[in-house]
Nucleic acid binder design. Structure first.
Lengths: 226, 226
DNA sequence: AATAAAATGTGATATATATCACAAGAAACT
DNA sequence: AGTTTCTTGTGATATATATCACATTTTATT
């Protein structure tokens, strides 16, 4: 754990960018910066939550122990708040968060956050915008998961990693087949089969966890048509 | 459309309850109260959104034209904001809303709402709490839909109507079998079959749309175990 | 380097549920 | 009241995907 310097922090969120110097000092005094190595647990489901979690750098999976099996809710790339939403109304964490690569996290004092919401309208509005945008995304991914069939959901996941995480058609999958299954709601076997299908059909090239998108248009079609 | 009297309104949300008399007058001046009959469309997907929608009384389904077929996202009982979340960050409505019974809706001026968030910390915090609570609920229903099998999801839906909408073990289903299928993510045929199964197993009694829960414990088990 | 443990690929089989087809009942309209 | 349209029930069949089983590869540990 490291003393944080919020004022000079270059990873400020849209919300904290609206804080005054005074408020940033308050934020700083209640901020703990912690490093996590790949695979380490950042938040554990059902533990008590008394701070706001901000991912300063790195990559994180948010997962939950569902009624049937493990489910990965989403994958979050820094800089971003980690499920802001549940922090305000709930005392316990409804989910776990695990680092997918070396990650730096700021734990921010919840009470200061509340104070800023009460006293700084700009800040409050940015928080609301952030929550709002997130919800719409979650909404759509939930819908897609519910209606598309497995190949479509896997195609979607590949495009997600390419476009939103790595900004490249060539990347190394940061999760196992099992995790990819938990993310899109299928089994590791089905993931395996569909990935090799995509490879055989020259839609992607696949070598272990190294993926290159060869036919983006087709992958898009599969993702959209389900 | 009727002139609204927000000050005296006895259906105030937790947030608007924090507004001053002055602010309530501003709210009132930008508020239109509209009645909808059963089956009428309140909001149409892809239409422009420039107001906050508050369900004053009645019952509403929120649905979306998914990649494959229609999906009912959730059913909302008054008094409640109708998907507050998407209102702030998006100019177009991402979903449709249809009245399931006669419903009264207040369309509130978005700009006034923003103004209140900026100027009234109590109000802003209540809005954030509301969004936050909603998200957690949506979260869980999404998870359940993804992992449980059909009988479990239908059991869950029956319990939802009993416990959260009608507060009674005896109620009349406000939607068709098709709609129930769209809500839990299955076909109308499967809904039919499972409902008659439940009836034959004396878990519910079923007569058209009239449902009575006979064995709540078992229904709960089916809902939880998936 | 050797051994253990975890992750992955792939075939055979089982199963839940969608789809198709049609009949019957209820509701809405003329 | 009669006709049309929408809703519902139920059987037969198709199909996507889970499950099981086992071999193989990769990664971690001693």
């Amino acid at each position: 754990m490291v003393k944080a310097y919020c004022k000079q922090c270059s990873f400020k969120s849209l919300a904290t960018a609206k804080l005054t110097d005074n408020e940033l000092e308050i934020l700083e005094s209640g901020c703990a910066e912690v490093s996590f190595k790949t695979g380490e647990i950042i938040i554990k489901q059902n533990s008590l939550s008394n701070s706001i979690t901000y991912i300063k750098s790195g990559l994180v999976k948010i997962h939950i122990n569902g009624p049937v099996k493990e489910k990965i809710i989403k994958i979050i790339k820094a800089p971003k708040y980690l499920c802001l939403n549940s922090n305000f109304s709930e005392k316990i964490n409804h989910f776990s968060a695990t680092a997918l690569e070396d990650t730096i996290v700021c734990f921010l004092n919840l009470e200061s956050f509340k104070k800023f919401i009460y006293e700084n309208g700009d800040f409050a509005y940015q928080i609301i915008l952030d929550m709002s945008k997130n919800e719409i995304k979650d909404f759509h991914s939930c819908l897609n998961n519910a209606q598309k069939q497995t190949a479509g959901r896997i195609a979607e996941a590949i495009l997600f990693f390419a476009n939103e995480i790595y900004n490249s058609k060539n990347f190394t999958l940061p999760i196992s087949r099992q995790d990819l299954g938990d993310l899109v709601g299928t089994t590791r076997e089905s993931v395996s089969r569909i990935l090799t299908d995509f490879h055989n059909d020259k839609i992607i090239s696949l070598e272990g966890k190294i993926i290159s998108i060869l036919n983006e248009k087709l992958l898009n079609d599969i993702s959209e048509k389900g």
